[in-house]
Amino acid sequence: MSPPFNIGFVIFPDLTQLDFTGPLQVLSRLPGAAVHIVAKSTAPVPSDCGLGLVPTHTFTSSPALDLVCVPGGNQGVVDAIDDRETIEFVRRQAATARYVTSVCTGAFILGVAGVLKGRRATTHWAFADLLPLVGATHEKARVVKDGNVITAGGVTSGIDFGLSVVAELAGETVARTIQLGIEYDPAPPFDSGHPDRAPAGLASGLLSGRYGDSRSAYRAGLERAAHKL
């Protein structure tokens, strides 16, 4: 019997749950996969919408991962990039993993772990201009693959990322079957999912409002971590 393909999601307080649960739903259906939810302890981890998430492993009990995925989250990532245990776990697993991946602002955790130096990468549009602080070059796309590093854009792009990985590992037919099974057939009521298409002023309003303080906190945290890169 072939060993399982170990997929591990690294979670932390105040992560954005859809960054995690979107690709989790897809990748858990990958034939031969074993999914692990890894955190500092096995205590429930609160997400930024109040949903509690239960880890299956700690940093010390986690198996070696074939694919490690780090989700994002505004304040959650700010705290995680300052957390030595989280960064060291990601760095250690990235050294041997077949794929090292992130969704949304989880890219900055990869960056502080030294994974994105010299790589093309993407993240949530509101934070993309900060990628050079971790040595990465921003590429505007929902999913960017550079070698064994795969980064996805904001939140919902994690589903696209998951399907892309399934197609690479198990073939397009399996990926299409999973897509049909979860009825992933987006038809949003508004064409405002990206600043290139959103009404004038909407993106700038978010940058000065919801994301303004977070951007400042990210910049400060990344500058503190710069000596580690």
Rank of each mutant, 00 (worst) to 15 (best):
A198G: 03
R29G: 02
A43C: 03
C104G: 00
I182Y: 03
G221Y: 08
H194N: 09
T21G: 00
A220I: 07
A175S: 15
N148E: 05
V45P: 03
V103I: 14
E139W: 09
C69H: 06
E85N: 15
P63D: 00
V54M: 12
D213T: 12
S208Y: 06
S2N: 11
S214K: 11
P195Q: 14
P44C: 06
Q75K: 05
P55D: 06
R92M: 00
R29T: 06
L131Y: 01
G135C: 09
V78M: 06
I182M: 09
N148I: 04
T16A: 12
D129K: 11
V35Y: 14
V143A: 08
G162R: 03
T21D: 07
G201H: 02
T123H: 09
V26D: 07
A43W: 04
I11V: 14
F89C: 01
D129E: 15
D82R: 10
D66S: 15
H57Y: 04
V100C: 11
A141H: 10
L163Q: 07
E139K: 15
R119G: 11
A170V: 12
L110H: 06
S62T: 01
A80V: 12
A141Y: 09
C49A: 14
A203L: 10
T151C: 14
I159V: 13
F12S: 08
P195S: 05
N74S: 10
A126Y: 05
S28G: 13
I11N: 00
T86G: 03
D196I: 05
H194G: 01
A97C: 01
T86Q: 08
L180F: 10
R29W: 04
S208L: 05
D19M: 02
G114A: 12
P3I: 04
A128I: 02
F12R: 12
P13R: 10
V35N: 13
A33T: 12
L130P: 08
R210Y: 13
V26I: 15
R91P: 05
R215N: 13
H227A: 14
P132Q: 07
K228D: 09
R224P: 02
R91V: 04
N6Q: 15
K228Y: 01
G118W: 05
D160T: 00
C49Y: 03
G8S: 03
C104A: 11
R84Y: 02
I109W: 03
G171T: 07
V54Q: 13
L67I: 04
G193E: 02
L116A: 09
S47P: 14
P189L: 06
G106N: 11
E85M: 04
A64D: 08
T101I: 10
T122V: 09
G209D: 05
I37P: 00
V112I: 07
A94M: 03
G193K: 01
G201C: 13
T123V: 11
R176Q: 15
N148K: 11
G212E: 12
L30V: 08
T123I: 08
F108I: 10
K40T: 01
V38R: 03
